[in-house]
């Protein structure tokens, strides 16, 4: 018996319209989650470098818990576990966005902490010596410089989070991978369809990389 495999281009092309329906969900979960994650990251990142223990410890606990457990477990916990606690179902989209937000928030906290701590102490001293308050010194002098240094690691996190959304097929969100699974169940063209799925992820992440590289170059040009 002879084994022959041929890549079925037609099957790949035919799957595209159905797969594309998953992209809005992938993007919504990624960027919706990342936007909230960024806010969480600023909040908990700054709290984690606060000297007061009752601010620092809860922030550190949050960061360690969400960095130290798999995002798959987190989303399963939110989708299947939390409804027991709150006494009602959570829809998969909300659960997905919440998981990306909480997970990326923990990593972004570390990015924020690192960025802020990388700015020379002399900058703070210069601000204070000019009569600026600690808050003014932070937001007009430290943060703009720290943020510039945070762009590459933030971009990295965005790419990681976009790929993480592929795990959420398990809770039934109609994102890219889930669409692929449904399509394959009817056509049995796994090789072609997962190939297209991979290409579509690559298209999203490459576009993002390109935008970030331009942003970085513009940011650096003025320093």
């Amino acid at each position: 018996m002879e084994f022959q495999f041929q890549f079925d281009w037609q099957a790949a092309i035919n799957s595209i319209p159905f797969l594309l329906k998953g992209i809005p969900y992938t993007l919504l979960i990624s960027f919706g989650g990342l936007a909230i994650g960024f806010a969480l990251g600023i909040l908990f990142g700054l709290l984690s470098i606060n000297k007061k223990w009752f601010l620092k410890w809860p922030a550190t606990a949050y960061i360690e818990i969400f960095r130290g457990t798999p995002i798959l477990v987190q989303v399963l916990f939110i989708f299947y576990g939390l409804p027991d606690l709150i006494g009602g179902p959570i829809d998969p989209l909300t659960a997905g966005i919440a998981a990306i937000a909480l997970n990326s928030g923990a990593y972004i906290s570390e990015v924020v902490r690192g960025g802020v701590q990388s700015i020379d102490k002399g900058q703070t001293e210069a601000g204070l010596s000019l009569g600026l308050s600690r808050t003014q010194t932070f937001w007009s002098i430290i943060w703009p410089q720290a943020f510039r240094r945070m762009i590459p690691p933030l971009g990295n996190q965005a790419i990681v989070s976009i790929k993480d959304t592929s795990l959420f097929s398990v809770i039934g969100v109609g994102e890219l991978v889930r669409q692929g699974q449904i399509y394959i169940a009817n056509t049995f063209t796994a090789f072609e369809v997962y190939f297209v799925v991979a290409i579509l992820y690559l298209a999203i992440t490459l576009t993002l990389s390109l935008i970030l590289r331009l942003a970085e170059r513009r940011g650096l040009a003025s320093v």
Binding site: D120, G122, Q123, A126, L130, G131, L132, S140
Partner: peptide
């Protein structure tokens, strides 16, 4: 005035000087 100058690298020379009078 500090040994290492401690100018604000993200602001132009003029903005470095304008910052404190405007904020404070």
């Amino acid at each position: 005035v500090f040994q290492q100058f401690n100018l604000f690298p993200h602001l132009t020379v003029k903005k470095n000087i304008m910052l404190a009078p405007m904020k404070v």
